[in-house]
Nucleic acid binder design. Sequence first.
DNA 1: TACACAAAAATTGTTCAACACTCTGGACAG
DNA 2: CTGTCCAGAGTGTTGAACAATTTTTGTGTA
Lengths: 243, 243
Amino acid sequence: MAARKPQGDETGYSNLGGSNATGSRAAEPVQTLAETVAERVREKVISGTLTPGSHLSEMVLCEELQVSRNTLREVFRILTKEGLLRYEANRGVFVSTPSMSTIIDIYRVRRFIECSALAQAHPRHPGTQRMRLAVDDAHRCREAGNWLGVGSADISFHSAIVELADSPRLSSFYAHISLELRLVFGLLQDPEFLHGPFIDQNGEILLELEAGRSGAAAEKLEAYLLRAERFILGAYARVAPSA
Amino acid sequence: MAARKPQGDETGYSNLGGSNATGSRAAEPVQTLAETVAERVREKVISGTLTPGSHLSEMVLCEELQVSRNTLREVFRILTKEGLLRYEANRGVFVSTPSMSTIIDIYRVRRFIECSALAQAHPRHPGTQRMRLAVDDAHRCREAGNWLGVGSADISFHSAIVELADSPRLSSFYAHISLELRLVFGLLQDPEFLHGPFIDQNGEILLELEAGRSGAAAEKLEAYLLRAERFILGAYARVAPSA
DNA sequence: TACACAAAAATTGTTCAACACTCTGGACAG
DNA sequence: CTGTCCAGAGTGTTGAACAATTTTTGTGTA
């Protein structure tokens, strides 16, 4: 019974674990059931369907996702390592709730990594094209009023910045950070208010880089990130004044 | 039957997953069986008992470690995320084999992170004390001919550098990188030859920092890392000329 | 009513046995 | 020599079971 799922959608999420060392055979698109389900739960978490802090009962989710308890625990393991879920011994898993210090740390890491990557970047690096794509995409989404799309484009712009450093491990780490940031965004309402003011600044940064002034670009990026941090912290304080 | 193990040794390894967000109750030292076993397997891997590239059969390891298959799979999941093991769909897990590009990427990340952290460090930061401790420890171990201890002290010195940045996420990421580096060290023989030349350079870097010249310290660190990379790559080429 | 303590229920941690699916290697026909 | 088929081995997933722990409930006492 319970035949294997037809293995529908692929993740599009690069295999985080790093160290794809041998490289002998191409990374196969074969996905295990646990990974597929993890993808679904991840969506639920960052979309806000599963609210931060709430308890995830094993039995309930088994029923809901139509998988066995063992498989579900593998899913929990995956998402816990990604920082989206949190274990408490003998009490189960909870959706992790970003705190102020989480946000502060995320932006500290972002300034640390993105600014250095940008400062030492070569203007003709392929990552630049990906930055250009992201900026254009963001503008298109803004025209269409698709603010979730704007958010995705923003994240992909900054991921492209990190890729300027040409380090798979750094990029994979930054993917983690982005994921946590998405959790924060999910906690905050009003994506237009969140992402709207920052689209044009991305464009300016890119212009500086394309003109070969990577130093100036890095400075603008740092200012951008400091402003964004204050912005997010303010919005957070309004939503969860206690924490 | 199969009574629960008395849960003997604790890891001492900080909980990597990041995002210990709520912080409501103190992080309990309670360790799940899987984590305990993971610790043991991790030791086997970085000590070289399990040689890189070798296949880990589930049944064999179940027998050897006296745990069930499900628990062992959780262990595999943990160590895969850490980069020590590698999955191949329907073929099982293998000890991941660091390649040249792995080493290059590790050192790229190290230069990227450590140098920035050091450059913007405050000399009175508590991390400085931990650096001092590590340097002294390394000297003690060298006197005693304990070269494995020297290696540990070296890693702890550089971890302390990263902690200067005051970012839990960055430190946890660096712990991953260190782990992979240990794997490389395990592949290479002759730890005296590996670590011996670098003890004094750590001391010099620390001296610069303590004197308030963090810029000079960062420069020395970068030179150190470039030299170490060439050194490691050379040793690697001698051990595995094919890859 | 308020509080401490013990029994019961619910939930998680771990194991086991079974079966489906995939990969590998060899036998065999052409 | 090449391609196909088949059995064996190993992984992927499931459902049920029991142990350990937490949470809830119930009870008696001041």
